[in-house]
Write a protein that binds this DNA or RNA. Structure first.
Lengths: 339, 339
DNA sequence: GCACAAAATGAAAACGTTTGCATTACTATT
DNA sequence: AATAGTAATGCAAACGTTTTCATTTTGTGC
């Protein structure tokens, strides 16, 4: 006696009194099978509890129906919007997401890429443009449709959609300068293996330098992407008598931490110190004071990236690299003011 | 001429001068092949750029190496900790995550479950205990190792690990009572198809009822999980002259919105109104005022859930249902005070 | 009814692995 | 040097589908 665990396509075929080929067609090309046959098969499927095996169909070079997504972390407000938008759009296009996180470790990213390719994902989504040579090489060798999200640059090796983070940095720095600030501190995360943060910092420093403004070494705070750490590292700076009149943060979470640090010291934002972020996270508009920041439209980035990937997958002949620059925008709110 | 696209196991075998069987063993049971043969194969793999095909191995009933995770949304601070912890632990155990989101739509959840099963995931992670009968039935029929995260109950149909949300509700309500409050308002999300929120609300109402405290209908605010919405809906309540002395929020994000509403009206928290949350999100301890809330230890939930799932997968004979109650804990902080 | 085209179905090969069994190559023991 | 025992390898079947090609069924116009 056979001790098979679950129904396969043959069981369904027998049940419905047709051949396996017909059952297969019923799933993949329904218009090729007569409506009443289809109904028979449908009944057989329900009776047997059949669930088709994607692995077995993927083996024929057919679509695996999955797309891989590799992100630094899920732990954070930073990417959640982006990921959600990306996932939703891809779901809408019939894909399932295979997600992996590397914790800002690019060696691990490469391994994850390999693992996703083993699963024969049809496309890959990545965050940022900083990747190992091996990573790029593997993508190119396998000609895997890929899109890098978050960062735009005109000269990338793979398709990208995102904001120009240098521009974002420039924009917020210029805003602070326009308000008349000269004593400016920065609160940024580690920029190692994090090109988004690096680009922003570059943009900021670029503008400040052009305006002949120096940022002393001890005014360049280093923090993780957490309210807690950002708050901790800025308390010292703010309680010093020789303190800045404005602080530019690497993102909105950091900015929020800085604001709390100031407020906990009894300072008024923006009266005593202006604080600006980058990102315009959900909620940033409704903080107290509402946060001046740079809007990055991560929803749009995620959605567009998914659409581009879908296109790349469905037209594999076309090897064009798509690049989409999602414009950044200054959101002037209450946390910054004239000097 | 063959126009094959990528190297398969046979190409590697030829390259290395061995049989495909040996190559296969080299991947799956390395100790069964001689070290020098292994080296030859290793070289051949690199030269041919071979990446093995999980689909083809999954077909043999072997491990697919994937685990499915179905969550309501990724868009939110609520689950990000949990998901990150769950993902990390499973990665550590050699699995890749297949993630899908249903946007709080349980019909869609069922469809996603089917789709994940088509991919032959070895286990399933779900959020909460509210699921369609079909969903439970399918899991049981296929005997798919599954674990529900976030909510603990002693009588569940599948394994679960999480907090007792009723207890969480009770705890925070009791705290508010202990502080002497009698005029208490609630700010909760829609509890439809959301058993976490429903349980919390149940716990809160239970304790209030026992203390003979009524919550007028217009003091039961309904809001989404967003700072913005929470802030909007609470402004009216707080600006009324007949206002509560304390507000219990369904989670920390909502609480934050309520606090901002109060502060934007010039009120002091907790001086004029006490505000409490549930969840103890990262950052909640560092808000201003720091938020009194119920700690749910989502990291631990995620990690434990992953471990349980791993166990369930590796010992499929054992059909026990694991249930883990992660104790909740009151975090008394600055946002609440004696009446 | 008949011839013919078109539509629906079936038979069997193929996909890229793994694995049970058979075979060959080593190692150690006498 | 022969033998037994073990370790390493190869052969071929199997896994659950899809797909090509051939065959049968259905429908159409006379």
């Amino acid at each position: 006696m056979k001790t098979k665990k679950y129904a396969d396509i043959i069981d369904v075929a027998n049940h419905a009194g047709v051949s396996p080929a017909t059952v297969s067609r019923c799933f993949n090309h329904p218009d090729m099978v007569r409506p009443d046959t289809r109904k028979q098969i449908q009944i057989a499927v329900e009776q047997t509890g059949y669930i088709r095996n994607r692995a077995a169909q993927a083996i024929h070079g057919r679509r695996s129906g999955t797309v891989g997504l590799i992100v630094p972390t899920l732990d954070n407000a930073i990417f959640s919007n982006l990921i959600q938008a990306f996932t939703e759009q891809l779901n809408a296009n019939g894909f399932t997401m295979l997600v992996a996180t590397h914790g800002y470790d690019l060696d691990r990213e490469y391994k994850l890429l390999r693992s996703l390719l083993e699963h024969r994902v049809e496309g890959i989504g990545l965050i940022g443009l900083d990747h190992k040579e091996e990573t790029y090489a593997l993508i190119e060798r396998r000609e895997t449709p890929s899109v890098a999200m978050w960062n735009y640059r005109p000269d990338t090796r793979i398709s990208c959609v995102g904001a120009d983070n240098i521009e974002a940095g420039k924009l917020i720095a210029q805003h602070i300068l326009d308000l008349g600030h000269k004593r400016i501190a920065l609160a940024f995360p580690d920029t190692h293996e994090n090109d988004r943060a690096a680009s922003r910092l570059t943009g900021v420093l670029d503008v400040l330098k052009k305006a002949d403004i120096q940022v002393p070494a001890d005014w360049r705070l280093n923090t993780t992407y957490s309210i807690r750490n950002a708050r901790e590292v800025s308390v010292d700076l703010l309680s010093s008598h020789d303190r800045p009149t404005a602080i530019i943060a690497g993102n909105d979470v950091i900015a929020q931490g800085v604001i709390y640090a100031a407020q906990s010291l009894g300072m008024n934002v923006p009266g005593d110190v202006s604080v600006a972020g980058i990102g315009d996270f959900s909620g940033s508009a409704h903080l107290l004071p509402s946060l001046t920041t740079i809007k990055l439209r991560s929803n749009k980035v995620g959605r567009s990236a998914a659409l581009i990937l879908d296109e790349l997958i469905n037209d594999r002949e076309n090897k064009n690299i798509h690049r989409l620059d999602i414009k950044v925008e200054l959101m002037m709110r209450e946390s910054t003011s004239k000097l």
